[in-house]
Design a protein around this nucleic acid. Structure first.
Length: 593
RNA sequence: GCGGGCGUAGCUCAGUUGGUUAGAGUAUCGGCCUGUCACGCCGAGGGUCGCGGGUUCGAGCCCCGUCGCUCGCGCCA
């Protein structure tokens, strides 16, 4: 039996009445009636009400302890008086009458943030006193949710026949990708380790080593600036790799894991396997994004041909189209009676936030086409427009006209805004989809050359034959993303395990064999000693927890987050180091404090 | 690096057109109270209005600068 407690603060029930027990925890709240005082004692598990009468020798001390002091109380479990039970507490039918108590840790100064209640507090104070913030119910629950999700992921992966392996934290800087965190080497002056941006090469080497199916809750480090949904510096992935698989095999392996976890930890409906698969091109056209939120029912369409017609005289768009631009149509159903401000606001947003020329629109109401640009259309053109964009009476259609990339992006963002404004998106569901058939290469306009569009290690569809005989910009890769509610959880790929195909792919992107051998020689060389076809992916754990906790901010699901400027306000990181430490590392700091 | 928002008591906030001694709730301390569960009632203490400069007879309020936090852009194989 523990020195401090026989039960937790969530355990005691009517069945325990009459027992003498000990509980320990934090003073959550105190209600002192003079003649009788109540203390809510809180631990990780719950809250138990402690009652203390005026004749109790401990009354004076107990009623003067500040909130959040830690005490251990020995007492008798008694039934609450009839009518004073609290149905909101599991322990609400009983209370503990104090017999003896011990102060384990007394609070003697003002709390920088109150624990009780769920008010909002300044982020910097919360981060500086994270250990207090973490006591608060919502955050405490989120962190436990995270813990439980990770347990469940491990269990599901193990059950699916995957093995968990650790990969190095101190490794080599890799040439492409995000900025690396560097760690100076003491033994090799002037040289640096890098923290892994992801265990990409290691997991492929694990496949080459014959372990067949790997996973890891892998820490990843990228020295990039923060966002609300992106911690500065570090995050976790459910890193997965499998041997002897096609794209479909990877999907089939991971779908039940994701679907299962989302069903397990939420009351919301989660899509069951198999998830919808949307080719990249189709996603960019219909949703204006490679991470479409399928809760939004709006579908974008291409209406360039309408604006090309001779009986349509809207010259602003015609000029853009003549220069290779396109027009995308975003429907806004049942908006005929929206006030002018609804349309103006969207237009203003497009101009200011999106730096677009604007969003033209036509509203169909009472058998007429209304709006600033409606007069440029003949009835025939309007009919074609309606059928292409899927709008009808009482609907509006908005237009995004620009180069294909920009028009798609503007239309996609407009789709999100319109869906939100109209309140037509599904609620309380998790909608998953795979985005497949990403292009292998893309045209880099700045450098006038072909670049890899995503991961250079992905296998091109069509293999060597495609690389030799096809226009590179038309080649797709076995590269895929998984998206949930508009959040990109993960990208992944069937890897290119054939050295000659890899060298050819790099050659197309302008990298000679020497460069590839130098930068990726380790892995390339490994592939020359017998490598299985393999592929995988790496869903973001933090993102999954955010979705399941239904919070837009990653700090709400991270135990000890840094602030937006990549500082740990509690541990004071980053910090200065001593000259001795610098000397050992052969470093000299070039800036003064 | 750039743009937006915020900054008044430990915490949450109010503060009118620039005008007396900057207020409330909560927390803290003291007093009263035997059934509360956001207990209640009375009282007290608590302020460099982020910081610096300027305009003005007078600045929490207006102007300039700066710092901090945050959201976004850039960045993110």
């Amino acid at each position: 039996m523990s020195l401090y407690r026989t039960h937790t603060c969530a355990q005691l029930r009517k069945e325990n009445i009459g027992e003498t027990v000990k509980i320990a925890g934090w003073i959550h709240r105190r209600r002192d009636h003079g003649g009788v005082a109540f203390i809510d004692l809180r631990d990780h598990y719950g809250i138990t009400q402690v009652v203390c009468g005026p004749t109790n020798p401990h009354f004076e001390k107990l009623t003067h302890l500040r909130a959040e002091s830690v005490i251990s109380i020995e007492g008798e479990v008694i039934a609450r008086e009839a009518g004073t039970e609290n149905s909101e507490l599991g322990t609400g039918e009983i209370e503990l009458r104090v017999v003896n108590f011990e102060v384990l840790s007394e609070v003697t100064q003002d709390l920088p943030v109150p624990i009780f209640g769920e008010l909002e507090y300044p982020e910097d104070v919360r981060l500086r006193y994270r250990f207090l913030d973490l006591r608060r119910e919502t955050l405490h629950k989120n962190i436990m949710l995270r813990s439980n999700i990770i347990s469940s992921l491990r269990r599901r992966m193990n059950e699916a026949g995957f093995f968990e392996f650790q990969t190095p934290i101190l490794t080599a800087s890799s040439p492409e990708g995000a900025r690396d965190f560097l760690v100076p080497s003491r033994l090799h002056p002037g040289k640096f380790y890098a923290l892994p941006q992801a265990p990409q090469q290691f997991k492929q080497l694990i496949m080459v080593a014959g372990f067949d199916r790997y996973f890891q809750i892998a820490p990843c480090f990228r020295d990039e600036d923060a966002r609300a949904d992106r911690s500065p510096g570090e995050f976790y992935q459910l890193d997965i790799e499998m041997s002897f698989v096609s794209q479909d095999d990877v999907f089939a392996a991971i779908e039940p894991v994701l679907s299962g976890v989302f069903s397990e930890f939420s009351t919301w409906e989660a899509d069951a396997a198999p998830f919808v698969r949307i080719p990249y091109k189709e996603a960019m056209l219909k949703y204006g994004s490679d991470k479409p939120d399928l809760r939004n029912p709006l579908i974008i369409s291409d209406v360039t041909e309408v604006f090309k017609r001779d009986d349509v005289t809207f010259n602003a768009f015609k000029g853009t189209i003549a220069n290779g631009g396109v027009v995308r149509a975003i429907p806004a159903p049942n908006t005929a009676d929206k006030p002018r401000s609804f349309f103006d606001k969207l237009n203003e947003w497009a101009r200011k936030d999106m730096q677009a020329a604007g969003l033209g629109y036509i509203t169909f109401a009472a058998g007429e086409a209304k709006g600033p640009i409606a007069k440029f259309f003949t009835p025939e053109a309007l009919e074609l427009l309606k059928s292409l964009s899927g709008v009808g009476e009482n609907d509006t259609v908005f237009f995004a006209c620009d180069t294909e990339d920009k028009a798609a992006k503007l239309a996609g963002q407009a789709r999100n805004r319109i869906g939100d404004e109209l309140g037509i998106c599904e609620k309380n569901v998790y909608r998953f989809c795979w985005i497949v058939d990403f292009p292998m290469f893309e045209w880099n306009e700045d450098e006038k050359k072909v670049d890899f569009s995503h991961n250079p290690f992905s296998m091109p569809q069509g293999g060597m034959d495609a690389l030799l005989n096809q226009d590179p910009l038309t080649i797709n890769a076995y590269q895929y993303d998984i998206v949930c509610n508009g959040v990109e959880l993960s990208s992944g790929a069937i890897r290119n395990h054939r050295p000659e195909i890899m060298l050819k792919a790099f050659e197309i992107a302008g990298y000679g064999a020497e460069v590839v051998e130098e930068k990726f020689g380790g892995m390339l060389n490994a592939f020359r000693y017998g490598a299985p076809p393999h592929g995988g992916l790496a869903p973001g754990v933090d993102r999954m927890v955010m979705l399941l906790a239904d919070t837009p901010n990653i700090r709400e699901v991270t135990m000890f987050p840094m602030n937006q400027n990549a500082q740990d306000l509690m541990m004071q990181a980053p910090s200065n180091v001593s000259n001795k430490q610098l000397r050992e590392l052969s470093l000299r700091v070039a800036v003064q404090d």
